[in-house]
């Protein structure tokens, strides 16, 4: 602000002089908004009726502030929960947790049989993923699918929530049974990535069903009936799982755009 408003201009503004054109009025008002000194000068020039009116308004505003509704309370915690949580997943998470607990107890009881925790680990996140992405269980799928955060960002948030709920119990069970963490972690991550990758094409719920039943039929059922630990969950196959997990994650990130549209 270099110069202040000259007194004649301010006087004609206060008097609402029709001689002052629109452009001049704007210039005066923009200056007044930013300059306390000129506002004080204008207040001195104002006529008494105007000052009385302003006092009345001030009183009315104060009364309104005191008697009116208070400002809305912020709930940062609730808001964070809303942005991350996927409510439809909760019942499934409970089921998966009970399954992990049961597998852990059976493994403790029969240490010579193939480990059920390891057999369960790859498919444990699938139920949660399927529900988080299913249009049948997410009531607002149609609204959320058309927003700009759909796609990579929602994919990331939902997957993180599902993994953060499923992995800790597996870690606990694996630790109590004295297993190498990579043995259950890498298959779980690989199957998560594969489900999301395939899900971008055919829908995550279908992909989870296909991959989950394939794992159960090809690996779990033979392992339980023959009582041999299958080669895919022995430590020899760890490098293959590591490679698969890395490739799967990279491909999933590259194809995240597939999740921008609603599944059919």
């Amino acid at each position: 602000m270099t110069t202040h408003i000259p007194s004649p201009a301010l006087e004609s503004y206060v008097a609402a002089d029709p001689g002052l054109d629109d452009a001049a009025v704007w210039a005066v008002e923009v200056h007044l908004e930013n300059c306390a000194e000129c506002r004080a000068r204008m207040a001195e020039m104002a006529a008494p009726p105007l000052l009385a009116l302003l006092d009345d308004v001030q009183v009315a505003i104060d009364r309104g502030v005191r008697s009116g509704p208070g400002p809305v309370r912020r709930h940062p915690w609730r808001r964070m929960v809303h942005r991350w949580a996927v409510w439809s997943v909760v019942p499934w998470i409970v089921t998966v947790l009970s399954a992990v607990l049961a597998a852990f107890l059976l493994d403790r009881q029969f240490p010579e049989r193939p480990s059920l925790v390891l057999l369960l680990a790859p498919v444990a996140p699938l139920a949660g993923l399927a529900v988080a992405w299913s249009r049948r269980s997410d009531p607002a799928w149609e609204i959320t699918a058309g927003t700009s955060r759909a796609g990579l960002e929602m994919l990331f948030r939902r997957t993180v929530v599902v993994l953060a709920t499923v992995l800790p119990p597996l870690a606990l069970a694996g630790w109590r049974l004295g297993m190498n963490p990579a043995l259950w972690l890498l298959p779980a991550l690989t199957f998560t990535a594969a489900t999301l990758l395939l899900g971008g094409r055919i829908g995550v719920d279908r992909a989870a069903a296909v991959l989950g039943s394939a794992w159960v039929l090809v690996i779990v059922v033979p392992a339980i009936t023959s009582a041999d630990l299958p080669v895919v969950i022995r430590s020899e196959s760890l490098p293959v799982w590591a490679l698969a997990a890395v490739i799967g994650t990279v491909l999933t990130l590259l194809r995240a755009g597939d999740h921008q549209r609603a599944p059919r």
């Binding site: 809303h82 409510w87 997410d138 009531p139 607002a140 799928w141 149609e142 609204i143 058309g146």
Partner: peptide
């Protein structure tokens, strides 16, 4: 966008 079957939490 307001869909026909407007789902909500």
């Amino acid at each position: 966008y307001l869909p026909q079957h407007f789902g909500f939490y």
